[in-house]
Amino acid sequence: MNNVTPDRMLLLKTFLGLMQRDLRVLSREIGPFLLRVGMQPLLFLFVFTFVMPHMAGGSPMATTGVGFGSILLPGLMAVAIMFSGISAVALPLSTEFGITREIDDRVMCPAPVAVVAIEKIVFSSLQSMLAALAVIPMAMFIPATPVYPDLHRWWLLAIVMILSSLLAGAMGLAIGSIVSPKHIGLVFSIIVVPITFLGCVYYPWAYLDKIRWLQVAVLFNPIVYISEGLRSAVTPQVHSMPVWIVLPALVGFLYFLVRFGLRGFLRRVIS
């Protein structure tokens, strides 16, 4: 009587249906989406690699021998990835969980509830990857000394990008499911700003050796591994954390955040 088997074909169709819904919504918001992902790296590159070098003694990293642009490129890609993950998952989720309970219809789709959450992560990871790739041409055109990414290790770039983007989506899911809609605005100042500034985005991790305690403390920040992973992929001339540390760390954080985010999501929709 209870001999029911899940229909894998239907599961796939449901998943694609959810993706198409998100794509439709994103297509309407394409302008705001581009501004959201483009504005920060654009201004950062403009101010720190174009404006500052034109001022006497301007570049803050001028003495390091490596152009600040080279340090900034992977860092800005990391910020773009993380920022997209949070704004593509955490912000919509907080409204959908809020008074409108808009998520209900998707939760009631004929698939395990976790599929709805996983779709959110996957869809946001696509946005994260686009956002990160968009930083590359900006780095080639904006700085006074153009920065060209080294794409010889494209496979490493691909792996780091995929893991990082999924990680960012999972972080968005965890934040969106845990933080109440009322406090979602605070997320940016309490979570996003600190993990970015302390995420080895604007400086390589190796340079932190002068401040040992900070160098150890930031190891708990997943953004560090995103920045360092991208650094070893696109700017190998800058000293970065070894890949054999970065990749397992990304996988570990991804696993933890997916578990944590899914649990929060399920708790939010099933009582």
Partner: peptide
């Protein structure tokens, strides 16, 4: 209702979720 979708799309995507 999904506030980001039109009335038509609310029904259309609901159908898509169901295969």
């Amino acid at each position: 209702l999904d506030r980001s979708l039109t009335i038509y799309e609310n029904i259309y995507y609901h159908c898509r979720y169901f295969g």
